[in-house]
Simulated assay, not measured.
Amino acid sequence: MSSPNVDGIAGWAISLMETLGAPGAGLAIALENLFPPLPSEVILPLAGFTASKGNMGLFDAVLWTTLGSVVGALALYGVGALLGRERVVAIASKLPLVSVADIEKTEAWFAKHGRKTVFFGRMIPIFRSLISIPAGVERMPVTVFTLLTTLGSLIWNTAFVMAGYLLGENWSLVEQYMGIVSKSVLAIVVLAMVIFVVVRLSDKRKGKHHAEQ
């Protein structure tokens, strides 16, 4: 395959796939799970483009990228399980604006919605990697976590690999449009954090005011 004239992450991913084939695509996606700044929105369409050139099978591209997603997610699940609830609570209790009550509310929410969160979270940029950690902290049954992660990743990966396969040389269109989505998700997360901080500071001021009275 003659490589597209690209550099950076895309160039690295192309080189990996040219060297290792479909397993290279799987390795790239496993690393993307561990390091969210590596965007699957670039790697997956590139895998599809590579398949369209005959350098790997389309089925192999989907299979290996999904396997890579699961391996990366399990690694982060292990990090969460290793930290455990007590360490997370201990760390959080030392952070400003965070209380143990917040963690308990989060635990209760995850216990109720955890399965849906893991499944649908695999299809949300940035969040798709981070969701594995609380799943590990809460010790979601690993078989359930693996199944939900596999199904969610299979849908996400198939869509993007197929897009790259069908677009061919225009595979970068996927990255352009998904870049807008990723930035929107990031903006929502930042806004939520700002609102959380403002509300928490407001509650602290009210508490201090009542104490002084």
Rank of each mutant, 00 (worst) to 15 (best):
S40A: 08
A51S: 07
P37E: 03
V42Y: 04
P39H: 01
D102T: 07
F59Q: 12
K105M: 13
A47Q: 01
E32S: 14
L44W: 07
A101F: 09
P45A: 00
G48Y: 04
K105Y: 11
T50Y: 12
S69M: 09
T65P: 04
P45R: 02
A73D: 04
G8F: 00
W12D: 04
A30M: 13
A25D: 06
E104C: 04
L20S: 07
R85C: 08
D102Y: 07
V98P: 05
D7I: 00
V6T: 02
N33W: 11
G48T: 01
S99V: 12
N55Q: 14
S52R: 09
L34I: 12
S93L: 13
L74W: 05
A51Y: 07
G8E: 00
P36F: 02
L63I: 14
L46D: 07
T66M: 02
P23T: 04
E41P: 05
L97D: 07
L34R: 07
P4I: 00
I9V: 09
W12C: 00
A73R: 03
L20I: 09
F35N: 06
G8C: 01
L82S: 15
P96K: 12
A47H: 02
T65F: 03
S40V: 04
L31T: 10
R85T: 14
A73I: 06
S40P: 10
E18T: 10
W64L: 10
T65K: 01
V6R: 02
I9C: 02
G68E: 03
N33P: 10
G54S: 04
A75R: 11
P37W: 02
L82V: 12
G48W: 05
E104N: 09
L97T: 05
A10E: 05
L58M: 13
M17K: 00
N5A: 02
A22Q: 01
I14T: 08
V71R: 03
G68L: 02
A30T: 10
R85V: 13
V98S: 03
G26V: 06
R87W: 13
V100G: 11
L58P: 03
K53F: 03
L34A: 08
R87N: 15
S40W: 00
M56L: 14
F59S: 14
A101D: 15
L67A: 14
V89W: 13
G26L: 00
R87I: 13
D60W: 12
A73C: 09
K94G: 15
L44I: 08
A92E: 13
A108N: 12
E32Y: 02
A73W: 01
E18V: 06
P45H: 02
A25F: 05
V6C: 00
K105L: 14
I14L: 05
E104I: 08
L95V: 15
